[in-house]
Amino acid sequence: MPATIIHRFILCVGFLSLSHAGFSAAQHRSYLRLNELDFTHLPLDIFIQALISLFVIMYGVLQVAGDFKEIKASAELESRSWETFRNVPSFYTYSHRGKAFSKMYKPPPTKESLEED
């Protein structure tokens, strides 16, 4: 599934929300320092925001990053046949009958046409 604009938007919102939670936490620390209070734990709302934004980011990344690859080593080969696999481009030879289908191809002179000349 290709990444849509909505998924990118979700990812952006997740990052913004996470950084907002980070700034809030820093602000909380400075507030504690100014009031000379001891740090015990983060306020619950910041904690929850950070957690939710983490999940939103995880979802967004999974959608944007593209399809997963199969874990089996042979998975990519399963749809291929021997006919495509044996095709070796560096050893192509061009003297085959496919030529005759081309408009540019002039067949070699036949015996009759030589005798006419």
Binding site: Y92, Y94, G98, F101, S102, M104
Partner: peptide
Amino acid sequence: CVAALDTYELN
């Protein structure tokens, strides 16, 4: 180019 050679499309 290779495809053209293969199908004799010399142009």
